[in-house]
């Protein structure tokens, strides 16, 4: 690894398969990455690219069956999360790894008060008394910017607006001071001005609390604003990984390059016509034997049909899974 920081989460060769009536779907294929202390890692990809499934596999959140984590290691500190029993895993979830989901309405329980839902992990994981938990809950709601926190503990989720509900979700995820926070499309369901509030809050919380964050999104703009390092996923695998400025300034994989060209911006030059990535993302019935992007790739080489490229270093802290080299326009020299 380029910089000296120790990874607190290290994922190696993760494979997740869904068994369905029409056969297996290989959703995650040999995904390896790590997360360093205090870092914000962005994970970008389209729906079906395997980004959410990867993160849910890490902490055993996928229902099995149909899902099966078939291979790999997930090292949190010196513990392999794929090997430990359900009790240990439960104590890890919430306490050491916090999770924020996309839709705060469906992930909060409508029949319990918000206060009860924030206090639950505090009492379960931290063994706090009711009073201590309540005081901590007030602190947390204040931390995430909910006005009049103490009285709002008695309110139910439907009494909060979308942005406020997402703040509550963040408060719950932060309750036990996790080392790692996994946020799955946390702002996708929100309006832009509310999204800006939440992004601002997350930046602020990082400075205050210093936890490592994995931020899953399909929005490259959000990533550009908050991430330190970015992983791009396609067809269940990581196709490119780089520090954020490097990725946007010097994208190497044709998928990343195309993705950056297809999105219009509200600033800068306005293109007369949008570039298009033709075709559809793949559904993987078998582990890919060749590059999953080849059918949509403008730079397809003969080799791409025979082999699935592995990630190779292409710059400082930057790697890409592609045989094509944008510098030469031909095959990359090994």
């Amino acid at each position: 690894m380029p910089d000296g920081a120790v990874p607190i989460l290290d994922v190696r060769n993760l494979k997740t398969v869904f068994r369905t009536r029409s056969g297996e779907v290989h959703a995650v294929n040999s995904v390896s990455f790590d997360l360093k202390a205090g870092e914000l890692l962005g994970v970008v990809g389209e729906s079906g690219s395997g980004k959410s499934v990867t993160m849910m596999s890490l902490i055993g959140l996928l229902p099995s069956p149909p899902a099966e984590v078939r291979e790999g290691q997930v090292n949190l500190g010196n513990m392999d999360l794929l090997k430990v029993d359900e009790d240990t895993l439960r104590s890890v979830r919430g306490a050491r790894v916090g999770f924020i989901f996309q839709d705060p309405m469906t992930s909060l329980n409508p029949v319990f008060t918000v206060g009860w839902q924030i206090m639950e992990p505090l009492r379960k994981h931290m063994g706090m008394s009711k009073d201590a938990a309540r005081n901590r809950a007030v602190e947390l709601l204040e931390l995430v910017g909910i006005p009049d926190a103490r009285s709002r503990l008695r309110d139910y989720p439907h009494q909060f607006s979308g942005g406020m509900r997402q703040r509550v979700m963040i408060a719950i995820a932060l309750a036990c001071d996790p080392e790692v926070l996994i946020a799955d499309e946390p702002t996708t369901a929100l309006d832009v001005t509310i999204q800006a509030q939440i992004l601002d809050l997350v930046k602020d919380l990082r400075e205050k609390l210093g936890m490592a964050i994995i931020w899953i999104t399909h929005d490259l703009g959000v990533i550009a604003g908050i991430a330190d390092r970015v992983i791009v996923m396609y067809g269940g695998q990581i196709v490119e990984q780089a520090p954020v400025r490097e990725l946007f300034g010097n994208p190497q994989h044709p998928y990343t390059r195309a993705l950056l060209r297809t999105i219009p911006s509200v600033r800068g030059e306005r293109a007369a016509r949008l570039e298009v990535i033709e075709g559809q993302p793949p559904i993987l019935g078998a582990p890919p034997a060749a590059c999953p992007f080849r059918f949509r790739c403008p730079e397809r080489l003969a080799r791409c049909d025979r082999e699935n490229p592995v990630r190779v270093p292409v710059g400082a802290g930057h790697d890409a899974a592609c045989f094509w080299d944008p510098a030469t326009g031909g095959e990359r020299n090994a």
Binding site: M164, T193, I194, Q195, A196, G221, A224, G225, L260
Partner: peptide
């Protein structure tokens, strides 16, 4: 103005220059 400034910018070099206007409340 607030709406436009809230749109995240997919270019980190431009993003660093933007002064985001954060609207209070809902």
């Amino acid at each position: 103005r607030a709406l436009l400034s809230a749109v995240p910018e997919p270019d980190p070099r431009i993003e660093a220059e933007i002064k985001h206007i954060i609207l209070k409340g809902d």
